[in-house]
Amino acid sequence: MEFHVDSYTGEILNKTNNHLYIKPCKELEHVVAHYTITFQNNETIPEGSVLHLIPDVSGCFVFRFLDNFVLSVWGPTTEIVTVKNDLNTVGSKFFVEFLPGGLYQVLGIDISETVDKKYELQDFNKELFEEINKHVNTMTTFDEIVEKVNTILTREVRKHRIDQCIAHWINRIIKNKENVNTKQIAEDLGFSERQITRYFNRYVDMSVKKFSKIVRINHVIEEFNQNNFTQLATHHDYFDQAHFNHVFKEICGKSPSHYLKNMSDFYNEIYKF
């Protein structure tokens, strides 16, 4: 089974040397950040090269078209994940990059089972895996895959509605880069702090504080080309440079200066925040 990036003819968000980014259908815009097709180019990647994936608190599906079709589930990540850099050594792969809370809406399971872990979809939902596998085996283009995945995920999301009050706050934290706490959300919604904690654990399996930290660091990384840490720290409402450095190292495992010097060794998922 083999798919080629050139088989996709629909509208794209962006294209890099190894990635094609595609918008989901309108019904999934609150669940899926984008679809990604990875493909090979002529660049040589040193043997043993790895990529350090920035925590994204979201999760994804990974379709691998090998001798047999494989669909892996990556749970929301709260720490750096290191993977082999195989972009130019394997054929195309197809990713469903979820927004925070999106994986819950598709699988309808306790997300704590998936955080910082990788599983195969058939371990969680054999029926869903077999349905997707059956359709993929009859397809020859990425256009067909995008259309079918849109249809299947839309159906699954209708089964697992997320509480809209909490969804509003998840989206607010993402868009406004807010440093909020459980008490603030509880007072706004008229819920107890215990209820808010329970909702966040169910949908993203982490505290409001942790979620806010990781989202804000992702926003900072998007602006790293400015190369002015003090300005970035101030702009994103960190107490001072030392506080910014501490939080960055807590989330990414390295200092901001180390990250900047070795950016090619890291991968930050764009269009997710």
Rank of each mutant, 00 (worst) to 15 (best):
S7F: 05
Y8I: 01
Y8E: 07
E11M: 04
E11W: 03
E11V: 08
I12C: 02
K15H: 04
T16L: 00
N17L: 08
Y21I: 01
P24G: 04
T36G: 09
I37H: 07
I37A: 07
Q40L: 09
N42Q: 10
E43K: 15
S49R: 07
H52W: 05
H52S: 11
H52A: 07
H52V: 02
P55E: 09
D56T: 06
G59E: 04
C60F: 13
F61G: 00
V62Y: 04
V62R: 09
R64L: 08
L66R: 11
D67W: 00
F69P: 00
F69S: 06
S72C: 00
V73Y: 03
W74F: 08
T77V: 01
I80R: 09
V81R: 10
T82H: 05
N85Y: 04
D86Q: 08
N88H: 06
T89W: 03
V90Y: 03
G91H: 02
G91E: 01
F95Q: 05
F95L: 15
E97C: 11
G101C: 09
G102H: 03
L107T: 08
L107W: 07
S112P: 03
E113S: 13
T114E: 13
T114P: 06
K117C: 10
K118N: 11
E120H: 13
E120D: 14
D123C: 11
K126R: 15
E127N: 13
L128P: 13
E130V: 12
I132S: 11
N133H: 14
V136Y: 13
F142Y: 14
I145K: 11
I145Y: 11
V146S: 12
E147F: 10
E147C: 10
T151K: 14
I152P: 10
L153W: 15
R155M: 09
E156R: 15
V157S: 10
R158L: 13
R161G: 09
Q164I: 14
Q164A: 10
C165V: 09
A167T: 02
H168K: 15
W169C: 09
W169I: 11
I173R: 04
I174S: 06
N179L: 05
K183Y: 09
I185E: 02
I185S: 01
E187H: 10
D188R: 04
L189D: 09
G190N: 03
G190P: 02
S192Y: 01
E193Q: 11
Q195W: 01
I196H: 00
F200M: 05
R202Q: 06
V204S: 01
V204A: 03
D205K: 07
M206W: 00
S207I: 00
V208D: 01
K210A: 07
S212F: 02
S212N: 02
K213P: 03
I214P: 02
H219A: 14
V220Q: 02
E222H: 08
E223Q: 14
N227R: 12
N227Q: 08
N228Y: 04
L232R: 05
T234R: 14
H236W: 14
D237G: 01
Y238Q: 04
H243W: 06
F248L: 05
E250T: 05
E250K: 05
E250Q: 13
C252G: 02
G253E: 05
S257T: 13
N262R: 10
M263G: 06
M263W: 04
M263Q: 14
N268H: 15
Y271D: 08
K272Q: 15
